[in-house]
Simulated assay, not measured.
Amino acid sequence: MQFKALLVSETADKQFVPQVVTRELDELPAGEVLIRVSYSSLNYKDALSASGNRGVTRNYPHTPGIDAAGVVEQSSSSAFTPGDEVIVTGYDLGMNTAGGFAQYIRVPAAWLVRRPTGLSLRESMLLGTAGLTAALCVAKPEQNGLAKSADPLLVTGATGGVGSIAVALLSKLGYTVAAATGKAEQADFLRQLGAQQIVSRQELQDGSDKPMLKERWGGAVDTVGGDILFNVVKSLRYGASVACCGLTAGIGFNASVLPFILRGVNLLGVDSVELPLAVKAAMWDKLAGPWKLDNLDELASEISLEALPEAIQQMLAAKVAGRFLLNLA
């Protein structure tokens, strides 16, 4: 059987070219479950894979796509039968295993979460890895005592995939949200998601040379890393936490122990890739139930497989606000 897929190939002059091609099912990797993909979504990691980043994908030609939602076509696992609706995020999907930017994928059964009641396949990919990560970035601080107070919660990189969903989710849960961005023109977009305060990226970069900054935030979700992350740490209220999940501003920062021993703050790492499947399923249940967002469609633009290469270039050029939903149905 033939199907369409985005295939990224390396040319003789070491350029990486994404093209929509026709593939055969027997070209897919081994796996217990064959899935007809209905929807996927575009993440920054996908854009890196599509541009030849060897830290994400080692071998080419390759089909990126770390997210997929669809219907089981074939299964050698007793856990799934044809017709089951499932979600796949993370693990090796789209990194070194052919990913969700295709009409079919074949994966291990241990990567699959059943679509939770209350969330359609389309809605699951409006969220995707970004939504799952945002939910984890809320759940982990709540487990460490995050409480509603007069102090706003800060979200950095707020126009990105994780950031925009984090803004919407925190607002839904009743927190006062401050959204930090380098895209001043997207202030109205962030306010529509529930942000009550807009903070410039430059404002968060100031003070990197100081060991402590004025207490300002009741908690934070950081999607960018670098010195911005540690400036946030230095600005947390006593006992507050920041969940860290991104690195677009860098993997290192100028740090000291002072915020930790003088204010008792917490730096909480968040990973959504190798997370145990039971934890992923629990987060999806929250996103389909008490944490379900009313404004999901405001978070994403729907595109076709043919429009995906242009969307990838926009993401690499940092010209994207919100999410791209890939419709493969």
Rank of each mutant, 00 (worst) to 15 (best):
K14H: 15
L25C: 08
L305A: 13
G207I: 10
L293V: 07
V242L: 01
L287Q: 04
N295K: 12
I251N: 12
H62C: 03
P116I: 11
L258S: 08
L229E: 00
A139V: 10
Y238P: 05
S200W: 05
C245H: 02
A321R: 13
A98V: 11
T223E: 00
V242C: 01
V233F: 01
G226Q: 02
Q103K: 09
L126Y: 06
Y44V: 06
E32N: 11
K183S: 14
L146D: 01
Q205T: 09
A5G: 10
Q205I: 04
A178F: 09
C245S: 15
A281R: 15
A139Q: 14
A281I: 00
A30V: 13
V167I: 09
A278S: 15
M315N: 12
A288P: 07
I35P: 11
T57C: 09
V273P: 04
I228D: 02
A50E: 03
G194Y: 14
T11Q: 07
L34H: 05
A12N: 10
K286L: 14
T97I: 13
G94P: 06
L267M: 12
S120T: 15
L119K: 04
L34N: 07
V86G: 05
D227Q: 03
G226M: 07
L154S: 02
I165L: 15
S208P: 01
G52S: 08
S200G: 13
Q103N: 10
L112I: 14
L316Y: 08
G182W: 02
Q186P: 07
D297P: 04
L247K: 02
S304Q: 09
N254M: 00
S272C: 10
L6K: 07
V279C: 05
K148I: 15
A50D: 06
V273Y: 03
T81F: 01
K214V: 10
M95G: 04
N53W: 05
P276S: 08
G250C: 06
L136Y: 00
T223Q: 03
G70I: 03
K292R: 15
P141E: 12
L308D: 01
S235M: 07
V199Q: 01
L136K: 02
R216K: 13
R323Y: 09
G194F: 12
T181P: 01
R216C: 12
Y104P: 02
G118F: 13
C137E: 01
R191P: 05
S124P: 11
P290R: 14
A243H: 02
D294M: 08
T22D: 13
L170E: 14
D294Q: 14
M212Q: 10
S304N: 07
A255L: 00
V279W: 03
F260Q: 06
V199H: 06
A278E: 15
S200E: 14
R58Y: 04
V232R: 02
V233L: 06
L296G: 08
V21N: 01
V33F: 07
G226F: 01
P259L: 02
R114Y: 05
L229Q: 03
L325Y: 04
K292E: 08
S38T: 05
L305K: 05
S200N: 07
Y39K: 03
E203M: 08
S241F: 00
F16K: 00
A139W: 11
A249C: 00
D285E: 14
G163H: 10
A98L: 15
D188E: 14
A184C: 07
